[in-house]
Design a protein around this nucleic acid. Sequence first.
DNA 1: GTGACCACCTGGCCGC
DNA 2: TGCGGCCAGGTGGTCA
Length: 277
Amino acid sequence: MPELPEVETVRQTLKANILGKTIRDVDVFYEKMIHGTDVQSFVSHLKGQRLLDIKRYGKYLVFLFDEVAMVSHLRMEGRYFLKHLDLVRDKHEHVIFYFTDDSTLRYQDTRKFGTMELCDKDDYMSMKGLKKLGQEPIAEEIDYDLVYQKVKNRKQAIKTVLLDQTVLAGLGNIYVDETLFLSGLRPEKKASTLRKQDVKMLVRNSKIVLEKAIKLGGSSIRTYTSSLGVTGRFQNELYVHTRQGEPCKVCETKILKTKVGGRGTYYCPTCQTFKLS
DNA sequence: GTGACCACCTGGCCGC
DNA sequence: TGCGGCCAGGTGGTCA
């Protein structure tokens, strides 16, 4: 599923291929995907708009046009494909953007969880979701104290807290499992028991994991591929996620699977024994 | 303010 | 082979 590295890969790929194109028309085949306005208004506002830039905040993509911005979230299995006008529509393609050069950008989403919403191009950061995002671990400068302040009173498992996008933006199930492995921490450990230096270590390790994943084009677990069908290679680098029953790459102990906060969680019982209190 | 729970949705897998 | 049930999971909403 798309997390920060996958969304960043999509952004870079799309930017290289569709920047400067002008939308001639839009077809929406699943109306619930469009938030904040009705489909008719969504389409009419996008017609004639030229794409100027594509930005990313956490797992959100922001398409910047002449007069409007479109905020898109891929959720579980959303993907963008650039295809020629003549190609037959796949049954899971729910939104098609037709460009004036006869190419099309198609949004495909098997589970229909993804969302798109239009907003003012100068005020998209006030959108619900975007405005509450925490810092990104891959940012050049991190206010570690601010992250610690958000973590220190939380009684939930550290895994649950790391998945909270208002604490750190961009981490999802895969990369939280990998970050916790790298940090030697059990996923179910209470967040409030961590010291400031432990939180700093977690943020730094999440940065290492995310930057490596971006370099390799993200992960291609289950059905996920980036735009234009580009397949990531980070899944070959995973230490614990989806490796239940397989030997740990460090100590050869069998990787275990459990549930934390309702999420499937993988960990090494030998390497992840770091207890602080 | 915090935490738990639920809805959204469909393909894949498993057991019968 | 076909069917039913469960699981996967990011986010927002609701409720306690």
